[in-house]
Computed example of a mutant assay.
Amino acid sequence: MECVFGMVGKGFAIVVADTSAVHGILVHKTNEEKIMKLDSHKLIAASGEGGDRVQFSEYIHKNVALYQFRNGIPLTTSAAANFTRAELAAALRKNPYAVNILLAGYDNHTGPSLYYIDYLATLHKVDKAAFGYASYLSLSMMDTHYHAGMSLQEAIDLVDKCITEIRSRLVVAPPNFVIKIVDQHGARECAWRQSLPSASPTFC
Rank of each mutant, 00 (worst) to 15 (best):
M1N: 12
E2S: 15
C3E: 10
M7V: 02
M7P: 02
K10Q: 07
K10L: 06
K10V: 02
K10I: 04
V16W: 05
A17V: 03
A17T: 09
T19C: 12
T19F: 06
A21F: 08
V22M: 11
V22Y: 07
V22S: 13
G24T: 09
I25S: 14
I25G: 07
V27T: 15
H28G: 15
T30W: 13
N31Q: 14
K34R: 13
I35D: 09
I35F: 07
M36V: 13
M36G: 03
L38K: 00
H41Q: 04
K42M: 04
A45W: 05
A46L: 10
A46V: 08
E49P: 06
D52E: 07
R53Y: 08
V54C: 10
Q55M: 09
F56T: 06
F56M: 03
S57K: 02
S57W: 01
E58L: 10
E58N: 10
K62I: 10
K62S: 13
N63C: 06
N63D: 10
N63S: 08
N63I: 06
Y67G: 04
Y67R: 08
N71I: 08
G72N: 04
P74S: 04
P74M: 04
L75Y: 00
L75V: 00
T77C: 00
T77Y: 00
A79E: 02
A81I: 02
N82L: 02
T84C: 12
E87C: 12
A89Q: 11
A91L: 13
R93P: 11
K94D: 14
P96T: 07
Y97M: 14
V99C: 14
I101F: 07
L103K: 02
G105A: 07
D107M: 02
N108R: 12
T110D: 03
G111P: 04
L114N: 02
Y115L: 03
Y115Q: 05
I117G: 05
L120R: 09
T122D: 12
T122N: 15
T122G: 13
L123S: 04
V126Y: 06
K128H: 15
A130H: 07
F131C: 08
F131S: 07
G132S: 11
G132P: 07
A134C: 15
S135W: 05
Y136R: 09
L137V: 14
L139Q: 09
L139A: 06
L139G: 01
S140K: 13
M141A: 13
H145R: 08
Y146F: 09
H147D: 01
A148G: 08
G149V: 06
M150Q: 00
S151A: 12
Q153T: 14
Q153P: 05
Q153W: 09
D157T: 12
L158G: 09
V159E: 09
D160H: 15
K161W: 11
C162I: 08
I163W: 10
T164W: 12
I166T: 05
R167K: 15
R169A: 12
R169D: 12
R169K: 15
V172L: 13
P174F: 11
P175C: 05
N176F: 12
F177R: 03
I181W: 00
V182A: 01
D183Q: 00
H185G: 10
G186L: 05
A187P: 04
W192F: 11
W192L: 08
R193V: 00
Q194K: 11
Q194L: 11
S198Q: 14
A199M: 10
P201S: 06
F203S: 05
C204G: 12
